[in-house]
Design a protein around this nucleic acid. Structure first.
Lengths: 210, 210
DNA sequence: CCTACCGATCGGTAGG
DNA sequence: CCTACCGATCGGTAGG
């Protein structure tokens, strides 16, 4: 009956539009009017739900971190062990950013635009998970399946960074290969292969038994 | 005697300031007044040397590409062969972007802000070099020293991408490891190790003979 | 949530 | 008449 929006809906629409626009054009390249137009409301209406443009940016970042914390258990509890577990975790990671490249783009932009704040964000949010991932890498390392000159902590960060950048600029960079849609496929497959072969000293061919 | 600037000096100063500001704050986050202030002239003076802000952006990108074309011979002619040549090329690549992270930041920003134009830029500028690099990787592959499931073209692009991103966001991301300056060192070393071990099936320990 | 505005600053250009 | 600028202001738009 009531075609009027329920409260909270407008906020969600504003957040969604802002996330998409800011990921595409940046914070400075996105005006409150752009967001208002995308939602179909007036500019003051936007500022009724969020007190300032800066608050909208914070909310967009916060929603990304929420999704991240939500996906963390799935990432960490990815089944199996050893090389199989790596593939499972890496696949989940690719899915997380692949299903919404805007997340990756927003994170890259934040790193460029506000390096100091972004550093703190990384330390506060990624650090806990980083510890667990590093532990896993070190465990595999002690079992002698991995490269002995591997820097576990640095590796985890760089692998994560590769996934983020791949999804942030992948469509642009992968086009340098060729025009076909297979270009993206090859690109993503090679990213996974690089991360895997940089981790395991003996490249996994076919899992025998396990 | 004459403390007056010779012609061309002002243009170079504007270009330098614009490159630094746009790399740090983006195109939309940099005003003509910001550039004018950085150089110490008026805004109309800036617009006398470059007809518009857009022309300044084009000039900044152009200067990066000039440096790139200038560094290309050094990159391609990096001595030795096989794994030694890889290290030489990769080191030169790291130096190119490492000596001016603003270049890397500007490229990443362009990829985010103007994906279509950036794609054309990649195709026009990086493509020729890409062919040579891919050929080199394929040659090594046929000699059986490299992973047989390696996608040469995709690998080259991703390796290049890793160097660009490492230098664009390195100081921010590497801080996630720890506060010390050694963090950056470890970070860069691990990037090189990942690229190398993803390329060569047998990790190089010590060059014997050759 | 709208219309109607503010101080300021945007990119760009006027006359001199 | 040219260049290399200046102070002032253009029409619009930013965040609020």
């Amino acid at each position: 009956m009531t075609n009027t929006r329920e409260p909270g809906d407008a906020r969600a629409q504003i957040l969604s539009a802002a996330a998409r626009l800011m990921a595409a054009h940046g914070f400075d390249g996105t005006s409150l009017q752009d967001i208002a137009d995308a939602v179909g409301v007036s500019k003051p209406a936007v500022l009724h739900h969020y007190p300032s443009k800066e608050h909208i940016r914070a909310a967009v970042l916060q929603s990304i971190l929420e999704h991240w914390r939500e996906a963390l258990p799935r990432l960490l509890l990815a089944a199996s062990s050893g090389e199989g577990r790596f593939d499972a975790v890496f696949t989940e990671l690719q899915r997380f950013f692949g299903e919404s490249p805007d997340r990756a783009r927003m994170l890259v932009r934040e790193g460029l635009d506000r390096p100091d704040e972004f550093r703190k964000l990384l330390r506060g949010t990624v650090r806990p998970w980083l510890g667990a991932a590093t532990e896993y890498v070190r465990t595999g390392n002690s079992l002698g399946r991995q490269h002995d000159d591997l820097d576990a902590e640095a590796y985890v960060i760089i692998a994560l960074q590769m996934v983020v950048f791949t999804n942030a600029l992948g469509p642009v960079v992968s086009a340098a290969i060729d025009a076909g849609p297979e270009g993206r496929e090859r690109y993503h497959r090679e990213v996974a292969r690089i991360a895997r072969s940089a981790l395991f000293a003996r490249p996994p061919k076919a899992p025998s038994g396990q």
